[in-house]
Amino acid sequence: MEIARHWRLKEQRYNLTGTVCTKCGEKSFPPRRVCPKCGSETSAPFTFCGRGEVYSFTTIYEAPTGFNETAPYTVALVRLEEGLLVTAQLTDLGNDKPEIGMPVEMVTRRLRSDGDERGMLVYGYKFRPAVV
């Protein structure tokens, strides 16, 4: 049971919320207390727009514990419009083949159950092919 961790991470997971350095404007995800660019310790929450494109991807057939319900699934590095790379599952691929450069958008989906079917449900960001 990791309910405290899931609860602590909910804001960034539900909405792709990271930080922006109030000194130099550098954006970070996941949130950073210290700016990796200028070293400033002042930051504000920043919610990314959720649009981007697939930078690279791989398909997982042998899923780690907790993720086998949805295997096989594709994990991608997504280059967000704001320039950052985020690692996330792709979803709603249907019969589409994932491709480098594919336009994608963030959705909030069920990531897994914490433990077995009695555990809390964990929700967070994934990316799907852009609908329009």
């Binding site: 949805t70 709603d92 959705v107 909030t108 989906r109 069920r110 929700y123």
Partner: peptide, 13 residues
């Protein structure tokens, strides 16, 4: 619904 969808994810969208 997809394998990772339920009433919570759909309500949110």
């Amino acid at each position: 619904p997809g394998l990772d969808e339920d009433v919570i994810t759909m309500s949110l969208e």
